[in-house]
Write a protein that binds this DNA or RNA. Sequence first.
DNA 1: ACGCTAGCAGACCGATCGGTCCACCTCTCA
DNA 2: TGAGAGGTGGACCGATCGGTCTGCTAGCGT
Lengths: 197, 197
Amino acid sequence: MARIPVSSARERILDAAADLFDRYGVHAVGMQRIIDEAGCGKNLLYREFSSKDELVVAYLRRAARGWDITLEAARATVATPQRQLVELVRVVGERVPGTRGCPLRNTYAEFPDRDHPAHQVALEHFGAVREQLCELARQTSAPAPERLADRILLIINGLYINASGVGAEESAAIAVQLAQDVVRGETAAKASRSGVS
Amino acid sequence: MARIPVSSARERILDAAADLFDRYGVHAVGMQRIIDEAGCGKNLLYREFSSKDELVVAYLRRAARGWDITLEAARATVATPQRQLVELVRVVGERVPGTRGCPLRNTYAEFPDRDHPAHQVALEHFGAVREQLCELARQTSAPAPERLADRILLIINGLYINASGVGAEESAAIAVQLAQDVVRGETAAKASRSGVS
DNA sequence: ACGCTAGCAGACCGATCGGTCCACCTCTCA
DNA sequence: TGAGAGGTGGACCGATCGGTCTGCTAGCGT
């Protein structure tokens, strides 16, 4: 068998694990299955990741990094912060069909224990996303940027759940439309009846 | 030990299981723990529920029934279908703090296998909810009732995820506000720029 | 050409899983 | 009061879990 550079081993294992976790869930996938899929020995896997928990954390961190990249791409693709918020929803809706939704949110649901590292990584990510959305919203003319950010977050979260069932494409379209309306409504000069706070 | 009427045994076990499933997730809870919590023998449990899967399904069906009751209550509490849609969001937001979110949605995330009965029950419920919301939306003056229903569903789903982390109360307020705005916007005479369909 | 090392394969471990079965106890009713 | 139904507690089963350890093979550098 061809000698593969050591540095790639970690990524190869992580690829296999991510694919299986995404498809079947973390609990449902045993380490042996990951090993089989990655085509490596147990030794190598446990040298790179000292436990399953550590592997799961690495999986989640990579997913979180993926989100950050998505955000950066949205910022680069579209000019105004208003459109960037909508673009984020659009990209999520574009990617979610055919998947089980968001790895972080799914794994979070699988590990309710507050002390579990996977739970903590997910929570940390959710906080970061909210902060990113707030930052974007503050760059708009919205009088209540945090409310705008929370509304977009609500839409994104809803989209992730909605799309994991049937009708992913329709859900995506609905979410993007709603995001457009929300951004337009929130950045309109007049304060909405719902109040500024 | 006092003889407890047999008919209540099933409910007692289901109560214990639901409490544990809600708090720790289905995978994380073993049958022995449910038995300990319910204070019954293994025999009785396996007579009422022939397998863990069956117990999980019963747990989900009861949660789905709970939703139906909530819907009925919202219909009884508030007069117009517009306010009923908002009321639904309000009640969900009111109940979700301190919980891990929606049992059906969480368990759905835990059982991605399409063939698993728990997965099917959850999917069935999601479809029913969407249909209920559509029916409510059709009773409003909204020119695109299905879009209204999908938007409310998006908000409810987003709320369930949002609130399972930190800041449940704030998320609830955000969701209710957004639901109000959405209902108002969708039932306004003029068609939104987003188009009717 | 040969030793060294990295990595695959798999035996093995204790713990725990869902599920079955049996012994004993307790309450009911004749 | 004694037989029997119903239920608890726990031993027990095979399978599988995460994780460790030991060969053995294949490729490299000298």
